[in-house]
Computed example of a mutant assay.
Amino acid sequence: MAQERLKGKKVIITGASSGIGRHLVREVAKRGADVIIIARSTDKLKRLKAEIEMQYDVRVEPFTVDMGDLSQVKAAFETINMQWPTIDVLINNAGFGVFDYFEASDLDVMRRMFAVNVLGLMAATRMILPKMLQQGEGHIINVASIAGKLATPKASVYSATKSAVLGFTNGLRMELRGKGIKVTAVNPGPVKTNFFRTADPDGRYAANVARWMVTPEAVARKIAQAIGTNRREINIPLTLSAGARLYQVFPALVEKVAGRFLDKK
């Protein structure tokens, strides 16, 4: 049963202090997994550790890491590799976005988005992969986005980072075929989290797409249920996933017909 697959497993979750990540910690802990939680806020991590260990009989170990700083990522994962004999699951969830027309985009913000969303994710994976290869098993789950398949106005840079995550995830899956390591991409549409405080400070986009928003609890639950399975992708909600598939087949038509719909920011 899905509930039993995680009992006693060791799971790393980045971006663990809020949103999807925070709910993921709860989902894997209630299934009996020990959790290594990674985020920038030491205080939030401490509170989350206390909360989870009070409710569940699992071990929670926090690491304060800025996933956009590769030296911090390297140092933290070196410690994890030394202290934890096995790691069963790595969930690369950390990421952020800023919505703006490209002509107005700030180069430092662009660099930061790629550093966190792409390079930090790759660095974490690179650090933990040798352990999984030695074990002969493991599961790497990368949280990308529907935006990685269907770019929209004012999200060109964010979409580019998530397209990079999808390309990396798909290539890695093929590299690891036959080596016992599963690789899954997660593509949520808009999620009701604090993500939009940074990405959409005036609230316009969140208001326009409210009917298609999913909860972080729902996304976390689907990810937890997929751990240990051969799921290639998790796409949520299905309506936006269908739109992304249509775009891949008929891009010009979708851009022409759905242009106004896509420009919601």
Results as ranks from 00 to 15, higher is better:
residue 30 K to A: 03
residue 2 A to P: 07
residue 166 L to G: 00
residue 2 A to S: 01
residue 112 R to W: 04
residue 15 G to F: 04
residue 44 K to Y: 05
residue 86 T to M: 09
residue 228 G to R: 10
residue 151 A to S: 15
residue 77 F to S: 08
residue 118 V to S: 06
residue 132 M to C: 06
residue 260 R to L: 15
residue 96 F to A: 00
residue 25 V to R: 03
residue 262 L to M: 13
residue 188 P to L: 12
residue 207 A to D: 01
residue 159 S to F: 15
residue 93 N to D: 10
residue 78 E to T: 07
residue 219 V to N: 02
residue 108 D to H: 03
residue 68 G to V: 15
residue 90 L to D: 08
residue 255 E to Q: 07
residue 20 I to G: 02
residue 99 F to A: 07
residue 233 E to Q: 14
residue 158 Y to D: 08
residue 36 I to D: 08
residue 80 I to N: 01
residue 64 T to V: 12
residue 135 Q to K: 03
residue 53 E to D: 08
residue 233 E to G: 02
residue 11 V to H: 05
residue 79 T to L: 15
residue 136 G to W: 06
residue 149 K to V: 11
residue 19 G to V: 10
residue 197 R to D: 03
residue 194 N to L: 11
residue 77 F to P: 03
residue 48 L to Q: 08
residue 83 Q to V: 11
residue 195 F to W: 14
residue 41 S to P: 13
residue 235 N to C: 09
residue 134 Q to F: 14
residue 153 P to I: 06
residue 10 K to T: 12
residue 129 L to P: 09
residue 21 G to P: 11
residue 9 K to S: 06
residue 12 I to F: 02
residue 87 I to A: 05
residue 204 R to C: 01
residue 191 V to Q: 12
residue 115 A to P: 03
residue 198 T to I: 06
residue 97 G to N: 04
residue 56 Y to E: 12
residue 30 K to V: 14
residue 115 A to S: 06
residue 232 R to A: 08
residue 35 V to H: 07
residue 164 A to F: 10
residue 5 R to L: 10
residue 196 F to I: 01
residue 225 Q to D: 09
residue 231 R to G: 09
residue 149 K to R: 15
residue 110 M to P: 03
residue 187 N to G: 04
residue 227 I to G: 00
residue 98 V to C: 09
residue 217 E to N: 15
residue 197 R to S: 01
residue 185 A to Q: 00
residue 74 K to R: 12
residue 41 S to I: 05
residue 157 V to M: 05
residue 161 T to Q: 04
residue 68 G to E: 04
residue 62 P to V: 05
residue 92 N to T: 02
residue 130 P to T: 13
residue 128 I to H: 07
residue 211 R to A: 15
residue 23 H to L: 12
residue 134 Q to S: 08
residue 96 F to Q: 05
residue 141 I to Q: 04
residue 195 F to S: 06
residue 231 R to I: 10
residue 232 R to M: 13
residue 161 T to Y: 09
residue 28 V to L: 10
residue 214 V to E: 04
residue 114 F to A: 15
residue 8 G to S: 14
residue 175 E to N: 11
residue 142 N to S: 11
residue 189 G to D: 09
residue 70 L to Q: 07
residue 239 T to M: 06
residue 265 K to S: 08
residue 57 D to T: 11
